[in-house]
């Protein structure tokens, strides 16, 4: 759960939260792309560091750290497999280079998680859906998205209630071998599904009663408009992209090992 906790949006007032989600999305994509064209440790480290101001400006450092912690396990796996492979590739020899490249690839993953989590921590689902709508994604899809976000906590709550009720009737979830344990969950799943179906019918009724699908030209209480900060971020993103491509093409990147002359 901790990875998802680290991605959960909380309402905070900050310049990063106010940014247009479309611009933020472009930014994330650019960071993704750059992280993929580098495999050296130094540029990936820099990429990691230049995002820290966003985290601080968005006042989401705590949740952000939690999302990184959630990703730590995967990061370790990536590190170990890369290290082991380069260890074998180098003829069963331990080298500083292989250590560095394993670090670099791990950092690439960390950068991806970092930018992803900044995006989701600072973008309200409402704004995200608005952004989708304004990029001509069909409204049904956007509606499904916000409704899903709306009902996830409700269903989680309900699952907990059902679980407690069934436990009170003597259901033991933690008993038996693997297969038996999966079977133990059936008395929880069935009421959950039945109630979800009933809920969806009631929702459909309520939607219909509020003129769902009355017109193709649906309006919206809000519109996204780009303002000064959005253009600044767009400029920064373009700057980062051009610099990164230039460096990749024309500048040889030293490794840490060379710098330290190991």
């Amino acid at each position: 759960m901790s990875v998802f906790d680290g991605l959960k949006f909380r309402k905070v007032k900050s310049p990063i939260h106010d940014l247009d989600p479309r611009v933020k999305f472009i930014y994330v994509c650019v960071i993704f792309a750059i992280a993929l064209i580098f495999w050296e440790l130094i540029p990936l480290l820099i990429l990691f560091l230049i995002q820290l101001p966003f985290v601080l400006l968005g006042k989401v450092q705590r949740q952000w750290l939690r999302s990184l912690r959630g990703a730590a396990f995967l990061a370790i796996i990536i590190f170990v497999t890369n290290f082991v492979f380069s260890f074998i590739g180098a003829g069963y020899r331990f080298t500083a280079e292989s250590l560095e490249s394993a670090f670099a690839l791990t950092f690439r993953f960390v950068v991806l998680v970092e930018s992803f989590s900044i995006f989701f921590l600072t973008t309200s689902p409402d704004n995200l859906s608005l952004a989708l709508e304004q990029t001509r994604v069909p409204y049904e899809f956007c509606f499904a998205f916000t409704t899903a976000v709306r009902f996830v906590p409700v269903l989680a709550n309900e699952a907990q209630t059902i679980m407690d009720a069934q436990k009170a009737r003597g259901l033991e979830l933690e008993r038996g071998n693997f297969l038996k344990r999966i079977k133990n969950y059936i008395p929880i799943l069935i009421p959950l599904i039945v109630s979800a179906i009933r809920r969806s019918l009631e929702l459909a009724e309520a939607m219909e009663s509020r003129a769902w699908g009355a017109t193709k030209n649906r309006t919206n209480l809000y519109v996204l408009r780009m303002n000064k900060n959005d253009f600044i971020l767009l400029a920064i993103t373009t700057g980062i992209l051009i610099t990164a491509v230039y460096i990749r093409l024309f500048i040889p990147i030293p490794s840490v090992c060379e710098l330290l002359e190991i």
Partner: peptide
Amino acid sequence: PENQLFALSVEKDVAFGLENLGVPR
């Protein structure tokens, strides 16, 4: 009450019907 609110904020929910009807902003 729970199953007739679909939006993520109160005002968006209140606006839902009017948005569907295409009423100006």
